[in-house]
Simulated assay, not measured.
Amino acid sequence: MSETELEEGLTSAAARFDRALARLGTSVRDLNARVQRQQRMEVDTQRLIHERARLATELDKTAARAKRLDDSAHEVSRRLVVAMETVRSVLEKSE
């Protein structure tokens, strides 16, 4: 093998090595970007899970309050009916 062929072989090998390093660098950057996106998604998912839990708790409290209000309204309605019947009874007796 001549010195020129050896130099051409080394130049070719160096060029292939440089291209391989460039591809490796690109792959590493792409992988890093995917890892960062995955980490952001995990953080967002955890934030959404906490928000969902907070909203579920708030909904439960609101539903309990609505039930108490409904029960109170029912009791007020029942007492009004009793009071109206009492007033009607008193009015009938006074006639």
Rank of each mutant, 00 (worst) to 15 (best):
T62M: 13
V76E: 08
R29T: 10
A13W: 03
S2W: 00
D30S: 10
R23L: 06
M84N: 14
A66S: 09
R47Y: 12
A64V: 09
L55I: 01
K93V: 07
L91Y: 05
E7W: 08
L48K: 04
E3I: 11
L24R: 09
T57W: 08
G9T: 08
A33Q: 09
E7C: 08
A14H: 01
E95V: 13
A63Y: 02
T86N: 10
D70S: 13
N32T: 10
R65S: 11
V35I: 11
D30R: 10
A22M: 03
T45S: 15
V35Y: 00
M84T: 14
E58A: 01
E95N: 10
R19P: 00
M1S: 13
M84I: 13
I49E: 15
L24H: 09
T45C: 14
E51H: 03
K93A: 15
E51N: 01
K67P: 03
E51M: 03
L21F: 09
R79W: 00
A20I: 04
S2Q: 06
S94E: 14
E3M: 14
A20N: 03
V81A: 10
D18G: 10
V76H: 14
E5A: 06
L24S: 10
L24W: 06
A56G: 00
A53C: 07
Q38D: 11
R65Q: 11
L24N: 08
R23M: 04
V76K: 04
Q36M: 01
E75P: 02
S27P: 00
Q46V: 07
S89Y: 07
E92G: 09
L48S: 12
T4K: 04
A13G: 02
S89V: 01
A56Q: 02
T45A: 15
D30E: 11
E92W: 02
E85Q: 07
V35F: 00
D71K: 06
R78K: 14
D18I: 00
R23D: 04
A15Y: 05
A15G: 01
T57D: 12
V81N: 06
Q36C: 01
K93C: 11
A83S: 11
T4G: 06
A56T: 05
R47Q: 14
E58W: 05
A53L: 06
S2G: 04
A66F: 02
R40Q: 15
R88Q: 14
A83Q: 08
L31C: 07
R68G: 07
G25I: 00
V28L: 05
A53M: 00
V87H: 03
E42P: 06
E85P: 03
R68N: 08
S12Q: 02
Q46T: 08
E92H: 03
E7D: 12
A56E: 12
K93P: 04
H50W: 09
D30V: 04
V90C: 11
D44P: 06
T45K: 07
V81H: 10
D18R: 07
Q36W: 07
A33V: 06
H74S: 13
R16S: 01
D30N: 12
E3V: 09
